Simulated scan of single mutants.
Amino acid sequence: MNKKPIHTVPSGNGWSNKQGGKEISRHHTKANAESEGRRQAMRFETEHVIHKVNGQIVKKNSYGNDPCPPKDKR
Rank of each mutant, 00 (worst) to 15 (best):
M1E: 06
M1S: 04
M1H: 04
M1C: 02
N2A: 08
N2K: 11
N2D: 08
N2F: 10
K4C: 03
K4D: 12
P5E: 05
P5H: 07
H7K: 03
H7Q: 06
T8F: 00
T8H: 01
V9D: 01
V9M: 03
S11F: 09
G12W: 05
N13V: 06
G14Y: 02
G14E: 06
W15K: 05
S16G: 08
Q19H: 05
Q19T: 13
G20T: 14
G20F: 11
G21F: 14
K22W: 12
K22Y: 10
E23S: 09
E23T: 15
E23Q: 12
I24G: 01
S25C: 10
H27D: 14
H27C: 12
H28R: 15
K30I: 11
K30D: 08
K30A: 10
A31M: 09
N32F: 01
A33Y: 01
A33R: 03
E34H: 08
E34A: 10
S35C: 13
E36A: 14
E36S: 14
E36L: 03
E36Q: 14
R38H: 07
R39Q: 13
R39A: 13
A41K: 06
A41P: 04
R43F: 13
F44Y: 13
F44K: 09
E45I: 00
E45S: 11
T46A: 05
T46K: 02
E47S: 08
E47P: 01
H48T: 00
H51R: 10
H51A: 06
H51S: 10
H51L: 05
K52M: 04
K52A: 12
K52F: 02
V53Y: 02
V53N: 11
N54C: 08
N54T: 12
N54G: 11
G55M: 06
G55N: 13
Q56R: 12
Q56C: 08
Q56F: 08
Q56P: 01
I57L: 09
I57V: 15
V58I: 11
K60S: 12
S62C: 10
Y63T: 02
Y63P: 00
Y63H: 09
Y63I: 01
N65S: 05
D66N: 11
D66A: 03
D66C: 05
P67L: 05
C68F: 14
C68E: 14
P69R: 04
P69H: 00
P70K: 05
P70A: 01
K71G: 10
D72N: 03
K73Q: 08
K73P: 00
K73H: 04
R74S: 09
R74V: 06
R74N: 03
